[in-house]
């Protein structure tokens, strides 16, 4: 086999393996239901709770979007499907406002089973108090009735 052929074969391997990963063919997901389940729809209970909150829910939803929370978390109301962090629809449905707030500003205080500690960005204590209040109330309303 000539040197040129060796180079062509190497190039083909690199393009297939790395190129395939880049375009998302067999990205190597963990295959867990958490990672592959489609986003849930909002429940009637959460829609009612969000409607009751009104403008507070709108502001909380905006804070959620502006801070990239959906990049890591799945939340049906925000149509986010992040899988790096816990599925918020499933993990905070029964949490109190205080618990949700603590999980945002001090994520290492209590881990979520199945997720490594320290993966959650810990800079959200920088949010202003009104932003944090809106976000916490929005998250509780958006996940209520789960």
């Amino acid at each position: 086999m000539s040197e040129a052929w060796v180079r062509w074969v190497l190039a083909a391997i690199v393009v297939v393996v790395l190129g395939g990963t880049i375009v998302g063919i067999d990205p190597g997901g963990d295959g867990s239901p958490e990672a592959t389940a489609p986003a849930k729809t909002t429940s009637a209970s959460s829609r009612t709770a969000l409607a009751t909150l009104g403008v507070v829910a709108d502001r909380g939803r905006k804070t959620f979007a502006d801070n990239g929370c959906g990049g890591c978390h799945r939340l049906a109301d925000a149509r986010s499907e992040g899988t790096i962090g816990p599925d918020l629809d499933a993990s905070i449905s029964a949490d109190t406002l205080a618990t949700i707030r603590r999980d945002i500003v001090d994520p290492s205080a209590e881990g979520t089973p199945g997720y490594p500690d320290g993966r959650m960005p810990d800079g959200y204590a920088r949010l202003s108090k009104p932003e944090l209040d809106d976000l916490v109330r929005y998250l509780q309303a958006a996940t209520s009735g789960r």
């Binding site: 790395l18 880049i22 990049g71 992040g82 899988t83 790096i84 962090g85």
Partner: peptide, 27 residues
């Protein structure tokens, strides 16, 4: 980088696109 991009980082502002740029430039 490509693996993490498809594992959720694609939705993170600036970071996600940079992961993709890294993978393509490396190729």
């Amino acid at each position: 980088h490509a693996h993490l991009y498809h594992d959720g980082y694609s939705s993170i502002r600036w970071i996600g696109p940079l992961f993709l740029v890294n993978a393509i430039a490396s190729l």
